[in-house]
């Protein structure tokens, strides 16, 4: 994880009025909200589906559902962030996507354990940039099927 953290360029996204950072090199594209085909049985925990992204069927995860945040209807600012992973691409639905930001390494602190009652293994760290508090996402944990399934059963 060190390597990812030492790379400071990140895309800043908004979820439930909070800001999160995704390393810019894994982001393949940022798309406007479009029709998503619901896939049965995956829906309950990620509100997921698939999308036709230029001829490739791409799985989509609603990050709000993933992080157990209240669901909202898509707005004009809703975006789909396409993440390129080694084996496949996957898209995240987020409330909004902003700028690319340089996050200085010294501003990054480990994830505070007090953040809530939920286990937040998908947060790699927290950075304070000016007055903004930005949470760095640990993508492999966000996508990990086990932790999603576990959550799904809990909820």
């Amino acid at each position: 994880m060190e390597e990812v953290m030492s790379n400071h360029k990140s895309i800043i996204i908004e979820l439930n009025k909070e800001e999160y950072a995704i390393p810019v090199e894994v982001v393949g594209a940022i798309e406007r909200m479009q029709h998503i085909t619901r896939v049965p049985q995956t829906a309950s925990f990620v509100n997921g589906g698939v999308l036709n992204l230029r001829g490739v069927i791409t799985p989509i995860i609603d990050l709000r559902s993933r992080f157990n945040m209240p669901r909202i209807d898509p707005t004009d600012s809703t975006r789909i962030i396409i993440i390129n992973l080694e084996k496949y691409d996957v898209g995240f639905i987020v409330d909004a996507a902003y700028d690319v930001l340089d996050i200085p390494e010294e501003s990054i602190e480990p994830a505070p354990e007090v953040i809530g009652t939920v286990d937040v293994d998908y947060i790699a760290g927290v950075a304070k940039v000016g007055k903004r508090l930005i949470m760095l996402l640990q993508l492999d944990r966000v996508l990990s099927q086990e932790s999603i399934t576990a959550k799904g059963i809990e909820g």
């Binding site: 029709h35 085909t37 896939v39 049965p40 049985q41 995956t42 997921g48 698939v50 999308l51 036709n52 001829g55 069927i57 791409t58 799985p59 084996k87 496949y88 996957v90 996508l143």
Partner: peptide, 24 residues
């Protein structure tokens, strides 16, 4: 459907329709 979603019960795959949407 791709590796991430893996095997979904009673769905053998997906296709892209004329309007660009995905049908299972």
């Amino acid at each position: 459907l791709g590796d991430y979603l893996g095997n979904v019960f009673a769905i053998s795959g997906a296709t892209i329709l004329g309007d660009g949407q995905v049908a299972l």
